[in-house]
Simulated assay, not measured.
Amino acid sequence: MYVCVCVCVCVVSLSTLCLTPTIYNGFTYFFLTLLTSFHGKLYFFSCNELSWSSSRAFCVSKGADLVTITSLTEQNFLVSKIKAWHWIGLNDLETEGRWVWVNNQTLNETGVQFWYKRESGKSEPDNWKEAENCAIMKNDLNYLESWFDVFCKYRMKFICEKKY
């Protein structure tokens, strides 16, 4: 029997770096997470990579869910904290083309969208090979502050959020 301990170190005010143990498929994984608060929400930025559904299950197991982005301010805050691609809580798994957040709000209800727009060709979401049903957020030089639809089984870092 293994005993897991969560180790947290204060990085800056309102931010904490944690090593979080999680058992997944019978193995214990340690997830390094950055906990950051902003406008009444606590965000968890993973350093580990999981599929979209496993990322969501991890968030839910911690009393949170994948992030739901409701404003440009929140989008900009999140983008400022990441360098890699991260899962967000947006998908069209139930109905193709109808993008819904994990809290069941549609994009029309939240009123914000940050899909990548190509200068030539089809912009995101493009449902490439008719199988891209989960959304990621990117922040790199080629794709600043944009969302993309990708295959849900890809392994990516992820962002959880919890209201406090």
Rank of each mutant, 00 (worst) to 15 (best):
M1V: 08
V3I: 14
C4E: 01
S13E: 15
S13P: 05
S13C: 11
L14A: 07
T16H: 07
L17M: 11
L19M: 07
T20L: 05
P21N: 04
Y29I: 13
F30S: 03
T33I: 03
T36G: 07
T36F: 01
H39Y: 13
K41R: 15
L42Y: 03
L42M: 08
S46F: 00
N48D: 12
E49I: 11
W52I: 01
S55V: 01
R56A: 13
F58E: 01
C59L: 10
V60G: 04
S61T: 10
A64R: 05
D65M: 11
T68A: 06
T70H: 04
T70K: 12
S71I: 12
L72T: 07
L72W: 00
T73K: 08
T73R: 10
V79C: 12
S80W: 11
S80E: 10
A84H: 15
I88C: 02
G89E: 07
G89D: 03
G89Q: 07
D92C: 15
G97T: 13
R98A: 00
W99R: 10
N103F: 10
T106L: 14
N108E: 12
N108I: 12
G111P: 02
V112H: 09
F114Y: 15
F114K: 12
Y116I: 13
S120V: 13
G121R: 11
E124H: 08
P125W: 00
P125H: 02
E130P: 06
N142K: 14
E145R: 12
W147A: 03
F148S: 09
F148L: 10
F148C: 01
D149W: 00
F151G: 03
C152K: 03
K153M: 01
Y154E: 09
R155L: 08
R155G: 08
M156P: 06
K157M: 05
K157I: 04
K157P: 04
E161T: 08
K162I: 12
